[in-house]
């Protein structure tokens, strides 16, 4: 089983210039089982991106351990796919060339590549757009390409840093459904960072609310809105009273944190 285990994880940055130490993360502990869907929420600067970058292998923790499937994480790897806020697509390539980038780097034969690419473009709803240059796509379509590019590599763990942050409300809702569908169909472990409390509730089987200074997990929720979302419309779920209750609770929590930051300075 490839579980993600995070033990006593700490990260301290030295701010350039002043040399001040920033405790971006302190003593983070959690275990994410395979197939779990985790959403992470928190005020700006609480270390969400830092955590994700360490899991992806882009940053080395100051102390503590991170392991996926019993293997220590040491640098980026294909088993951990990442989706960035702005897609980070290669604008000089077409959609299908973007999607099969990882496969080409592995020197997979062209025929196999084509089959996989078509399959995934179909899944994310971009069939027929294979030869379009990516700079001609809308923001939502670009994020679909980024998803497909990540999934075609068949990673065990998918990391998403505010993947829907730049999208309009309608597109965002469609993409949320898509992510839930993908989660169900592939059974992948997914960590998704978001600024939206609703999105965190909808897409989180587990939900971490993080707090800043030092960055830590403030509270953890176990939710079943994500499971529900597979069968019901997301808008219906948002109307439910228990959904509204949790939402208000978390909003208040974050609001207080922000107050503390403002007052603290």
């Amino acid at each position: 089983m490839s579980d993600l285990v995070c033990k006593d994880l700490s990260m301290t940055f030295t701010a350039p210039g002043s040399g001040a130490m920033v405790e971006a993360l302190k003593n983070i502990n959690f275990t994410l089982k395979q197939g779990e869907l985790l959403s992470v929420l928190g005020p700006s600067g609480c270390g969400k991106t830092t955590l994700l970058n360490m899991v992806a292998g882009f940053l080395n923790p100051t102390s503590g351990q991170l392991a996926l499937g019993g293997k220590n994480i040491d640098g980026p790897g294909v088993e951990r796919g990442m989706v960035f806020q702005q897609g980070a697509l290669f604008e000089w390539l077409t959609v299908s060339k973007n999607v099969d980038f990882g496969l080409r780097m592995k020197n997979m034969p062209a025929a196999e590549r084509k089959e996989l690419v078509n399959k995934w473009l179909d899944i994310v709803g971009l069939a027929g757009f294979g030869d379009t240059p990516t700079y001609q796509l809308s923001g939502g379509m670009q994020q679909r390409v980024a998803l497909a590019r990540c999934l075609v590599n068949d990673p065990d763990l998918i990391l998403m840093d505010e993947p829907l942050g730049a999208l309009d409300a309608l597109t965002r809702e469609k993409m949320q459904s898509l992510i839930l569908e993908l989660w169900k169909e592939t059974g992948k472990t997914i960590i998704i960072i978001t600024h939206s409390v609703e999105e965190a509730l909808l897409l989180g089987q587990r939900l971490f609310v993080m707090a800043p200074r030092p960055g830590r997990i403030h509270k953890e929720y176990q939710l079943d809105f994500a499971e529900e979302g597979l069968t019901r419309s997301l808008r219906d779920i948002k109307q439910k009273t228990d959904f509204a209750k949790v939402r208000e609770e978390i909003l208040t929590m974050i609001w207080n944190m922000e107050e503390e930051i403002m007052g603290g300075v």
Binding site: A56, G57, F58, G75, P76, G77, V78, R80, G81, M82, F84, Q86, A88, F90, W92, L93, F101, G102, R104, M105, K106, R149, C150, N153
Partner: peptide
């Protein structure tokens, strides 16, 4: 983010030079 994305997609340093940095 493009460099990081290509690392996560399994590209080697040389492949990143050729396929990401050069076209960029």
């Amino acid at each position: 983010s493009k460099i990081r994305a290509s690392h996560s997609l399994g590209a080697s340093n040389r492949q990143i030079l050729r396929h990401v940095i050069l076209p960029n």
